[in-house]
Amino acid sequence: MNPAMNSALNSGMAPVATPFFFYMLAGLAVVGGLLVITRRNAVHSALALIVTLLAVAGLYLMLYAPFVAGVQIIVYAGGIMVLFLFVIMLVNIERSSKERRFNRMWPVGLGAACALLALFVSAFAKGKALFPEGMMSMPESSNTQQIATMLYGDAGRMGQYTFAFEIASLLLLVAILGAVIMTKKRI
């Protein structure tokens, strides 16, 4: 048999993505983020955010989290971004694309963000030993099953997060009602 296939089949786990994929997806995510905060046109920002969200979903796949990646694509890229685009089209006024992009306090904001970045860099530099290579103990094939056990419970017992799951559904109900009532013209 083909030796490449043989070794892949015998390794027991799906081949992990190479550094090439990591750098490509990370680069896409960061470039998308940059485009989000710098474009004058809101629709361009929204498209760049979609690129970022899809790149982050790819990073989740590399981190052996296929279910979170699927949820990210369905909810974030397919739901929230459609909502954003709808609202951009509803409130899009011509004036906004000819105004200044950044507000008057932009040096202060940039300085604060740089301070935050310096904090992050020092945290990573000092604590580099605290973040070892990830343990490959999470098989990808039963990921959905295990998450479902944690969310829904198993064989008569409540799962670890069942209560939080129910509260999340209540939160979504409240959000739906709130959004509908706030945007109605006559209550």
């Binding site: 979609i50 694509i73 397919g78």
Partner: peptide, 26 residues
């Protein structure tokens, strides 16, 4: 054969909406 095949299908077909919205706006 992804382990989340159906989830992937649902997600990607919901991306098609974006193409239509953006086409109408553009």
């Amino acid at each position: 054969d992804m382990n989340i095949g159906i989830l992937f299908m649902l997600g990607v077909s919901s991306l098609g909406v974006l193409g239509i919205v953006v086409a109408g706006w553009a």
